[in-house]
């Protein structure tokens, strides 16, 4: 049986008095790509931000590699050595820092002298363009390059689980497809688990192993992607597929 890298039970969270996530259970297995889809405002981003401590969790528990991280603040999770990488949707790089400094931020809790050189070679193999522009400020990068840097930074600590919040949101259609392909490649070559939140519901579901449909902060459907892709209601309501008449 697959061992879950991350599992969450009955997560209830929100902002102040506003409850956005109303009791969600989820897990992601080893080397699995889990896609979370759902309409705008369904709480996808809030859910993954809750998992890593950026949004206050009112109830529930979150475990990463069997270590409980519920109610821990994000820096405490990272300091505890939890193998986690996260790429937010907006502000996913540090614009005033150089590419090198951005990558070093991925290793903030480690000794830079020791780890940076060890990791940087693999990162440059994955994203060669970053190596050419190492001393450039991140604010000067294009949208696609920024997204690459954001991924590279999240991969610096060699995480076992990567959480991506709409990595294609700011990209042109052809770049968006490249990005999704890159996510699949990363999963295969690095053997990591990935939680992907996506607006391009159908395409991302086709590429992933398992999917969750989130509606008004609750799990409306869950299962292997190929099964979800076959279900009529999901196809119509959430995947934007029009049936041929």
């Amino acid at each position: 049986m697959d061992k879950p890298v991350l599992r969450a039970h009955n997560v209830v969270s929100g902002y102040g008095k506003l409850q956005v996530i109303n009791g969600v259970d989820l897990h992601v297995n080893e080397k699995e790509l889990l896609t979370i889809i759902g309409p705008n405002g369904s709480g996808k981003t809030t859910l993954i931000r809750t998992l890593i401590g950026l949004v206050e969790m009112f109830e529930g528990q979150v475990f990463i590699r069997e270590k409980e991280v519920s109610h821990m603040r994000p820096h405490e999770i990272i300091k505890a050595g939890i193998p986690l990488g996260y790429v937010p949707q907006l502000a996913n790089v540090f614009p005033s820092l150089t590419i090198e400094e951005n990558l070093k931020m991925g290793l903030f809790v480690k000794k830079w002298d020791e780890y940076y050189l060890k990791r940087i070679e693999e990162i440059f193999n994955l994203f060669p363009i970053l190596g050419e522009r190492i001393s450039q400020r991140a604010s000067l990068l294009s949208g696609g390059e920024r997204q690459m840097l954001a991924l590279a930074r999240a991969l610096m600590p060699n995480p076992e689980i990567l959480i991506l919040d709409e990595p294609t949101a700011a990209l042109a259609p052809n770049l968006a497809e490249d990005m999704l392909q890159q996510v699949v490649t990363l999963k295969k070559t690095l053997g990591i688990s990935i939680i992907l939140v996506e607006q391009r519901a159908k395409r991302s579901m086709e590429l992933s192993d398992r999917g969750i449909v989130l509606v008004t902060g609750r799990v409306a459907a869950e299962g292997p992607s190929n099964e979800l892709l076959q279900e009529d209601t999901i196809r119509k309501l959430y995947l934007g597929v029009r049936e041929k008449s």
Partner: peptide
Amino acid sequence: TKFGIAMRATSDSIDLAQVSGINT
């Protein structure tokens, strides 16, 4: 210095700094 870079990172994005392990 690492501390200086952490200050600049915090100034750029508090959330991203936190998930990088910085106690903002």
